[in-house]
Amino acid sequence: MDLLAQQLINGLFIGSVYGLFAVGYTLVFGVLDILNLAHAAVFTLGGLLAVWLVEAAGLSLWLAFPVSVFCCGLLGLLLDRVAFAPLRQRADSNFSGLISSIAMAIIFESAALGLFGARTVRFPAHTISVHIWRWGGISITSLQVEIVAVAILLMVALTQFLNRARVGKAIRAVAENDRTARLLGIHVDGIIAFTFFISSALGGAAGILFGLYFDSLSPDMGRSIELKGLAVIILGGMGSIPGAILGGLAFGLSEVLTVALTGTSNLRDAVAFTVLFTVLILRPAGLLGRKKMREA
């Protein structure tokens, strides 16, 4: 029983990181109807850059985190300018944008290799003081609590921003209908660029938290989360922020529970994706997805 409770808690922690990663994915998708497949590469760069800032530049993690997140936001602006904006007028921009984002992902991954090397790195041991709390057989570290707190804080902040702030509402307006948004006087290109900034910043933040959680970062760490992130936003409903959060938690939980119940990690991905397909059969639009009518 303790083992199960422990795994549930672990699932919550890793699920919150998946959710944070997926929120950035789904935000861009909601606005542009385009998958930004360079999101996982930004995630990787965010984590590695934070390690570098701590290790080589000697910053504290609490400073390295926002600096790295901000740099990832700038990468998002670059992505928009280079990979998406030039294609926006094309009729096939959804597809061509997908391809050019893959190209950007490769460039970012190469940059990560060149800048940080192929080795697996970790945050120096003294970076964060870790407490361990134990209740019976359950143990939680202060690091885990901090990870989930930061992830949830960022997701709540994003939701509030989209629901209350003037620019946040403009993002939703552009997501609904960019032509109408233009007629309302919204500077659509600026809003799209800003959306990329937020999305990539959150992706970078997820990368840092992921690296802290597993205590290991490498230039290919984005690979494993890329597909999961996609699964999470499909599970939650494409373009839905709460859906991505919920989907992330569901995915994280199903992963760790599979490991706990079967005793091996062989079936972990298989079961997680089975959950995805089951949900999609029951609710094709995803957990919180709205049925979207496509204009001709």
Binding site: R166, K169, R172, E176, N177, T180, R182, L183, R290
Partner: peptide
Amino acid sequence: HRRVSEGVIQVPEGRQVLAGMTVRENLEM
């Protein structure tokens, strides 16, 4: 967007309300 600032405002064909946003948010936009 600058034309909107200049006061040239279009109410488009087919209404084009922002369907998923509230009535009030539409006005705010």
